[in-house]
Design a protein around this nucleic acid. Structure first.
Length: 426
RNA sequence: GUGGGCGUAGCUCAGCUGGUAGAGCACCCGGUUGUGGUCCGGGAUGUCGCGGGUUCAAGCCCCGUCGCUCACCCCA
């Protein structure tokens, strides 16, 4: 009895050729981060459960109903990471990274886990690329962080997205607003569940898509109107820094983020071509997180970008039949051997060309020349050679350019040189 | 957790008021001796998601179940 296995529910998987695009996305997003001096931090996939309940916030849905939590053999409660920031902060504190020069600038990339009901752009295992800058509250740093995400998207060719920003202010500003917002919500007719949620974090109601709730929230007091002078000046400084980089944005005073640690500048990138899950990335400042997790009182800011959703966004923006960035695999040369003797010669030839840096594929098994040529064509190789008895005799091959069928006779000894010359001309 | 849609070849799907399985794409081979992309010919591939029921007969009807998907809650 053979059982057919399937991947667990709701996970995202990437197979060729789409996996090439997936890889390209990550490589591309890294470029602006590296250019700004951010360095890789590679962290465990699972952490102490309490890191998330405390860091992300016990009131959040992420913590209350979406965590993959399990006990290890020593009875410790562990959780598959639902987001990246808490782990980064933990590592910074644990290893004293904040004792060096500030801000500490880090980037990470990898899988994250939330046990939600899957839908378009929402998976139980999903991928994020993120950066964190810890130890400075300079508004220019906020703008730098935002610009790194922005540049990453643009480098990938994305256009149809919008940057939304707001400020959640400092604790004084939030307290003043909370008082009025609570009073306002108390006057609304809400179902039990929603009311409970509002008690934990009333801002969440701004994000509710149900018609009756969004319409009644339209008159709710906005946090942005309660910012004290310091918070307001800070927000203005961030905005003008973005202006100076010609990064356009819209201020969305109703924006809500899912994690409780955000303060001050908060932002989200929203794509217009996606379904309900339109946020392709977001982040913000977190003033109290470091201290909350047992570290020094340093502010930080960062973002997480959803690789899966960026891929969906690229697909949404692509014209039909258009290739996505990185989708086509690149091959310099396809080598076809005819006969046993040639086969053995080709095998070492391919090896040496690869060592010189060329991307080379060879045909395997007994195929007709026609079939092998067809495979060469489909591989996307720019050039092909056929090596059989006569080539072994003469010591030269016909180097065929696949795009136009042109063949040039080349000595085997100068194949690499000619290939390099011809390739650079393309 | 709640609600809608869908489950037929590797992929996208067709299958009329039930009569016992098809197309396109992809794949492999060939169109006389060692050269691809077009064209022509040939070929392999399905327990029609699974279980039960109705019927002489079910991919089509009924019940259940599993899965996928979209949306809500929530969120990258």
């Amino acid at each position: 009895m053979s059982q057919k296995f399937a991947a667990p529910k709701g996970v995202s998987e990437y197979l060729p050729p789409k996996s090439n695009v997936f890889d390209r996305i990550i490589q591309t997003l890294k470029v602006p981060a590296l250019a700004a001096g951010y360095e890789l931090i590679e962290l465990p996939i699972f952490e102490d459960t309490e890191l998330f309940t405390r860091g992300v916030g016990a009131s959040t849905d992420v913590v209350t109903k979406e965590m993959y939590t399990f006990e290890d053999r020593g009875g410790r409660s562990l959780t598959l990471r639902p987001e990246g920031t808490a782990g980064v902060i933990r590592a910074v504190i644990e290893h004293g990274l904040d004792r060096g020069s500030l801000p500490v600038k880090l980037f990470y990339q990898g899988p994250f886990f939330r046990a939600e009901r899957p839908q378009a752009g929402r998976y139980r295992q999903f991928y994020q690329f993120g950066i964190e800058a810890i130890g400075s509250n300079d508004p220019y740093l906020d703008a730098e962080v935002i610009s790194i995400a922005y540049q990453g998207y643009r480098k990938l060719g994305l256009k149809d997205f919008e940057l939304q920003i707001t400020s959640l202010g400092d604790s004084e500003s939030r307290a003043a607003h909370r008082k009025d917002l609570d009073a306002f919500i108390a006057g609304l007719n809400l179902d039990e569940e929603t009311r409970t949620r509002a008690l934990k974090n009333p801002l969440r109601l701004f994000d509710d898509k149900r018609e009756e709730i969004s319409s009644s929230m339209s008159k709710a007091p906005l946090l942005l109107d309660y910012l004290n002078s310091e918070s307001r000046e800070n927000f203005e400084a961030v905005k003008s820094a973005l202006d100076s980089l010609e990064i356009s944005y819209v201020v969305n005073p109703r924006m809500v983020r899912g994690l409780d640690y955000y303060t001050g500048t908060t932002f989200e990138f929203v794509h217009n071509g996606l379904g309900a899950q339109s946020g392709i990335g977001g982040g913000g400042r977190y003033d109290g997180l470091m201290e909350l997790l047992g570290g020094s009182k340093l502010s930080g800011i960062g973002f997480g970008l959803g690789i899966d959703r960026i891929l969906l966004a690229l697909e949404a923006e692509a014209q039909s039949g258009q290739l996505l960035p990185g989708e086509l695999k690149y091959i310099d040369l396809y080598v076809i051997a005819l006969g046993d003797e040639a086969r053995s010669k080709c095998f070492t030839l391919v090896d040496s060309l690869r060592k010189e840096g060329f991307v080379v594929e060879q045909n395997f098994g007994d195929r007709s020349l026609k079939g092998a040529m067809k495979a060469a064509d489909k591989s996307g190789a720019r050039f092909a050679i056929v090596l059989g008895d006569s080539e072994l005799q003469s010591g030269s091959v016909e180097l065929k350019q696949m795009s136009n069928g042109e063949q040039t006779s080349v000595r085997l000894t100068s194949l690499a040189k000619t290939l390099a010359e011809k390739s650079s001309g393309l």
